[in-house]
Amino acid sequence: MPRPLVPDRRERLLDATERLILERGFDAMGIAAVAAEAGIGKGAVYLEFTGKRDLLDAVLRRATRRLRDRVRLEVGEAPGLGAAYRAAARALLDDPLMTAAFLDDRAVLGAHVDTVADDRYRRRHERFVGWVRGLQARGALMADVSPEHVALALSSATIGLLSAGRLLGPMTPSELEGAIEALGRMAAVFEVEPSAGA
């Protein structure tokens, strides 16, 4: 007789993986530990995921969707550049996995980051450029700034914050929040104020 399917198996595995990554870091986490944490047999993990890296990738994609959904809920579908950046920062700071990754504490992502060989980061950046270009097209961003340059500047600043803890020493969540608030204010400089008659 076949074993019954575990309800919400995939989500249970993702939840367990996220908890273990936060507790131990990706490099110290194993499939057997994920299975035990989820209360699922080790073989069932492989019915959902090809391995440890696939699990991490799925956890990070889920966390990214979580952040995006929260930002949309807070600022709607058509926020300004500064408001979107600030909302993303608040969402980031409230998400333990993404905060840990952003602060680079406890070696959360471990060696996985160095093994990503596809162009996901380039595609993500191009989507950001497209979003900034859309702001400009609807008149919410100065016409004389390059969307590519704005997106590159904000992306580079964010990447700099990702490595700041490693290069400058640990940052507190308060320091990170202040830095992102400052970036949000700088980004808002490029916004166009709606006219009084609009």
Rank of each mutant, 00 (worst) to 15 (best):
I21E: 00
I21T: 10
I21R: 10
L22Q: 10
L22V: 07
R24V: 01
R24G: 03
G25I: 12
G25R: 00
D27S: 10
M29I: 11
G30S: 15
I31H: 01
I31R: 12
I31L: 15
V34S: 02
A35D: 09
A35S: 11
A35N: 02
A36T: 09
A36S: 06
A36D: 15
E37A: 14
G39S: 08
G39H: 04
I40W: 00
G41T: 11
K42C: 01
K42T: 08
A44N: 10
A44R: 10
V45F: 00
Y46Q: 02
L47S: 11
E48D: 11
E48I: 02
E48G: 02
F49S: 05
F49P: 01
T50H: 11
G51V: 05
G51Y: 07
G51K: 05
D54Y: 06
L55K: 02
L55P: 03
L56F: 06
L56R: 08
A58D: 03
A58M: 00
V59M: 12
L60G: 09
R61N: 12
R62S: 09
A63S: 12
R65E: 15
R66K: 15
L67T: 12
L67F: 05
R68F: 09
R68E: 13
D69L: 14
V71S: 11
V71Y: 00
R72H: 04
R72Y: 00
L73R: 12
E74T: 12
E74Q: 12
V75K: 00
V75F: 00
G76W: 02
E77I: 06
A78N: 10
G80F: 05
L81G: 09
L81T: 08
L81K: 01
G82I: 07
A83V: 05
A83M: 08
A84V: 06
A84W: 07
A84K: 06
Y85I: 11
R86Q: 11
